[in-house]
Amino acid sequence: MAVEQIKNTLSRNFITFKTAAWLGWQMDSNWADPFLFIIYTIVKPISATFILVMMYVVVSGGSTAGSLFGFMYVGNAFYMYIFQILFGVTWVIHDDREHFQTIRYIYIAPSSFYAYVLGRSMSKLILTTVSVAITLAFGILFLGVPIGLGTVNIPMFLAVFFIGLASIVVFGLALAGISFLTAEHGMGMNEGLAGIFYLFAGVLYPIGTLPAWGAAFSKIIPLTYWLEGIRRSLIPTSTDPTLAAYSSGFLVYLMIISTIIFLILSIGIFRGAEHLARKQGKVDMLTSY
């Protein structure tokens, strides 16, 4: 009986997830014809990457050969996941509440709100994956980013990649919970957290470049280890000197532990904020932000 119930719940949650993912995809993609949409998907990440490429070549005198280039390029490509998923998960609450004013209907529907939020953010994950793939392919083909098929540690990449994604989604869920309580700070909160990660998580430069307190702070951010693990699996020679003493296995272990801790925290934050929002009548508030 209990097994049957669990099966039914899982099946219902999967249907919610699937439908929300389809809805999210439609919202993200059907505003333009497919050709324009493809251009949009390509232009944005390539431009963002080219800003860094230009900064590098202007100082290096045209060369992209240094080890920092690969470090920066791969870090920047995978940072797209951090920004887009944090934004994607959090923005669902704001968008449905303020812009489409549909949150009250979804909230009272007999389905898991978690499954809905996760489903809605899936389109961002898919689009970001396309952007990251395009960026990496461009780097390998035209800029000499030293990622070789023969040298990539695929098992490590897959393990690190998926644990890291889980970690980002967990962060996003905590922020989504806080979004229930605030409309005007939703965007600032997203940008703020993404900005903190951009500065401190060793996205573009080794964390030793930061002042000592900054480097120490970097070490408590799980995504620092995610980016380090990703880089080690793609470019074995690209290691942050400050983290060089940590073995790859230890990095994965750290990531698993921190993701579990943040998962528990994020569920607590989401539920707490949701409870407060219901109590204060904020679930379907309209503020015109």
């Binding site: 700070h185 500065l199 996205v203 573009l204 470049t209």
Partner: peptide, 27 residues
Amino acid sequence: SWLFFDTLMPILSIAAFVYIYKAMNAP
């Protein structure tokens, strides 16, 4: 609170760009 978000948040990404140049020993 806008002041906080409008002044502090942009500094974070700007600082990141500053540190890239520092990492490259740019002029």
